[in-house]
Amino acid sequence: MLNFSILGALQIRTALGPAEISGDLQRTLIQTLLVNEGQSISGESLVEEMWGDSVPENQANALQAHISRLRRKLKSLEPDRTLARVTIHPSGYRLTVHEGELDAAEFINAVRQAELATQTDPAATAKLLGTALSMWRGPVFGDFTGGTLCQLACARYEEYRMRAMELRFDAELRLGRHAAVLAELHEAHSNHPLRERFCEQLMIALYRSGRQADALNVYRLVWLHLSDELGIEPSPALRRVEHAILSHDPSLSPGVASPFALQTA
C-alpha cells in the first residue's frame, strides 16, 4: 500500500518510509494522474500538462517513456504488487489509487460527512473537521503546481478547505466556543477579507465576547472592501448579522445557533 499526500508538497510514503519522485516532468505526470482520483486522462491532456507549449517532436514516445519510468518507480515501491499502478485504457491513462491512499480524497470525504452532520451533531462535526484540516501541510503541491489541470485541482481543493473551515467554525460557535476560535477567525478573515462567511462568524464571535464595537467595525471594513474592489454591497446574510448585533438579537447569545450566520450553505 502507498500513501499519496498532495495537501502540501507531493509526498509518497511506503511501509519503509518516504519515497522521492525526481524530475519536474515526472512530478507533473504523477500529480496530474493523482488529481484525476482514479479516472482516466487522455494522452493529449497529459502532454499539454507536462510540456505546455514546448511539446517534444515525438510526443507519443516521450510520454510513453515517462509513463514507463513512473511505472518502474511505483513498482519498486511495491515489489510484491502484481498489477501495474499506471494502466492504459481506451480513454487514456489511469493511476490506481485505493481508498485511504490519497489524502485529498480523504479530506473531501470528511467535508461531505460533516455537511450531513453539522446540524445534528456539532461536536462530532468540529472534531471531524479539526482532524481533516490537520492533514494540510501547506498549499496543494507546495510550490510546484504544474499545468492548468493541476492548478484547477488546487483551486478546487482549496475551496473545500475554505468550506471545511466555515463548517468547523459554525460547529464551534454552536457549541459556544467563540473565545476558543476567535484568533483563528481573525486569521481566516485577514487572509480572506472578501469571504463573507468568515466575516459573519468573526462578527458573532466578537459580539459574544463583549466586543460589539469591534464586530461592527469588521462589517464596516468589509463593506468598504466590497464597495471599492467589487462595486457591490454586502450580502443579505451579512447585513442581517449586522442588524442582529445592533438590535442585540437573543439568537446571537453564546451557545445559541444564529439563524443568520450559522446556516449551512
Score class of each variant (00 low, 15 high):
residue 123 A to F: 06
residue 110 A to M: 03
residue 116 L to C: 07
residue 126 A to S: 14
residue 139 P to Q: 08
residue 114 A to S: 11
residue 135 M to S: 09
residue 127 K to T: 09
residue 105 A to R: 14
residue 149 L to Q: 12
residue 141 F to P: 06
residue 150 C to G: 05
residue 126 A to H: 03
residue 140 V to Y: 02
residue 146 G to V: 03
residue 117 A to M: 15
residue 108 I to G: 01
residue 150 C to M: 10
residue 105 A to T: 14
residue 99 E to F: 03
residue 145 T to L: 10
residue 122 P to E: 05
residue 120 T to K: 14
residue 131 T to A: 11
residue 124 A to R: 11
residue 119 Q to P: 01
residue 147 G to A: 11
residue 110 A to I: 08
residue 112 R to G: 10
residue 138 G to S: 08
residue 128 L to Y: 03
residue 115 E to T: 06
residue 137 R to L: 05
residue 103 D to P: 00
residue 134 S to Q: 11
residue 111 V to P: 07
residue 114 A to C: 03
residue 113 Q to E: 15
residue 125 T to M: 02
residue 125 T to W: 03
residue 140 V to P: 00
residue 111 V to N: 04
residue 119 Q to D: 12
residue 114 A to Y: 01
residue 128 L to M: 14
residue 149 L to H: 13
residue 147 G to E: 04
residue 132 A to L: 02
residue 131 T to Q: 14
residue 112 R to K: 15
residue 144 F to R: 15
residue 138 G to R: 04
residue 99 E to V: 12
residue 150 C to N: 14
residue 149 L to D: 06
residue 113 Q to T: 11
residue 120 T to P: 01
residue 136 W to Y: 10
residue 142 G to N: 00
residue 129 L to C: 08
residue 120 T to M: 10
residue 147 G to N: 07
residue 116 L to W: 05
residue 105 A to E: 13
residue 132 A to P: 06
residue 143 D to W: 00
residue 103 D to G: 04
residue 127 K to E: 15
residue 124 A to C: 01
residue 100 G to L: 02
residue 122 P to Y: 07
residue 114 A to T: 05
residue 129 L to N: 01
residue 137 R to A: 08
residue 103 D to I: 11
residue 132 A to C: 06
residue 142 G to V: 04
residue 120 T to Y: 13
residue 105 A to I: 11
residue 140 V to E: 02
residue 113 Q to A: 11
residue 102 L to T: 04
residue 149 L to P: 01
residue 100 G to W: 03
residue 111 V to I: 12
residue 150 C to Y: 01
residue 133 L to W: 09
residue 135 M to P: 01
residue 138 G to M: 05
residue 103 D to N: 15
residue 118 T to A: 15
residue 111 V to H: 03
residue 110 A to R: 12
residue 99 E to Y: 03
residue 108 I to A: 09
residue 107 F to L: 04
residue 129 L to V: 02
residue 109 N to E: 15
residue 102 L to M: 07
residue 123 A to Q: 11
residue 101 E to R: 00
residue 125 T to E: 02
residue 141 F to N: 07
residue 98 H to C: 09
residue 127 K to D: 13
residue 128 L to Q: 15
residue 102 L to F: 06
residue 137 R to E: 12
residue 102 L to D: 02
residue 99 E to S: 14
residue 135 M to W: 15
residue 119 Q to N: 15
residue 133 L to S: 06
residue 145 T to Q: 13
residue 148 T to N: 11
